[in-house]
Amino acid sequence: MTTLINKKHHVFIRLPMAGMILFVVFYIIAAMQYPGGSYTFPNKMGFNLKDNYLCDLLDGQTINGLQNTARTYARMALAILCFSLMLLWVYLPKLFTVKNKGQIIMSVAGILSMVITLFLASEVHDIIIRIAGVFGTVALILAVFELYRDQYLMLFYLGIICLVLFLTNYYIYETELLLYTLPLIQKITFIFCLSWFILLNRALHKKLQVK
């Protein structure tokens, strides 16, 4: 029976990490396929790390009016990432020694954030960002608190950085203060958050002693 449980965990615990790696691969492909155009430089060719948002790759048309040949890869990447992180949020409470209701709220908020993010390519992009952002913030705060309480200090400090970056993105997005910096800050945030999620995934794998 224990062997069967371990095999089950072996499959599902490894999937989020694999999904995050696939997300990066598909998004790089999408960026290479992007015809061009950003809000700062509408007629500039190609995808620019400094000027383009990751969401630009999801649109049916580019900002300069061309058909977006990158969107298929970008939407596949988004779906893979969302389902991967949903699975991680499902399993994350197992990382902690003492179980409580806060972990359930954390898990549900994280899952809802990813479910809502799946619709990021829709015409109500701004609403999706705001709603998913609220659920995501709740999940991150609770996760960071639980990490501190269980003495996962490295993950706690990295989680604080991710939370600060996440809230910085949200603040700039809402206030438009220093908006020109947001595309680059967005990518820095993604790097930190994906790194954190991967480390969480590894810690969870070790905690469950999946061989």
Rank of each mutant, 00 (worst) to 15 (best):
T69A: 14
K187V: 09
T175R: 11
I63G: 12
N48L: 03
L87I: 07
D51E: 14
H205Q: 07
N48A: 03
L178A: 15
L147Q: 06
L54P: 04
D59S: 15
L142D: 07
M86D: 09
V108H: 06
Y73D: 07
F41T: 11
N169R: 11
I28A: 07
F83Y: 14
L66P: 08
A77G: 03
Y173Q: 15
V134L: 05
S113R: 03
L204D: 03
F190C: 14
Q61T: 07
G133D: 01
I127H: 09
I111V: 06
L165K: 10
P183R: 11
D51W: 12
L158S: 12
T97V: 12
R149G: 02
M106T: 01
Y152W: 10
L140I: 02
G110P: 05
L57F: 05
I21Q: 06
P183N: 10
K211F: 03
F145N: 10
Q33G: 00
I161T: 13
F119T: 01
L112S: 06
G46N: 01
K101P: 08
K44Q: 03
F190T: 15
T97C: 13
M76S: 12
T72L: 13
T117H: 02
V210W: 00
F96C: 07
D126Y: 03
T189C: 15
G37I: 04
L78I: 11
L178N: 15
T137Y: 00
N201M: 09
G102T: 03
W89D: 13
I127G: 09
G65H: 02
M76H: 07
V134A: 05
G159Y: 11
L92Q: 09
I128R: 08
F96Y: 09
Q151T: 03
M32Y: 08
K94M: 12
I161M: 12
A139I: 00
W196H: 04
F47T: 00
F156Y: 13
F12K: 11
I21E: 08
L178Y: 14
R75L: 09
A132W: 04
V124W: 08
P183K: 06
F23T: 10
I131Y: 11
I198D: 03
F145M: 11
A143D: 07
L178M: 15
F96P: 05
F197K: 05
I111F: 02
T97G: 12
N6T: 13
G102V: 04
A70T: 01
R75S: 09
F41G: 00
I116W: 07
A132F: 02
M154R: 13
L92E: 08
A77H: 05
G159Q: 10
L142Q: 08
S195N: 10
T62Q: 06
L120V: 00
I28G: 01
N100Q: 10
L167Y: 13
K99W: 10
G46Y: 01
Q186W: 11
G133E: 01
S195F: 08
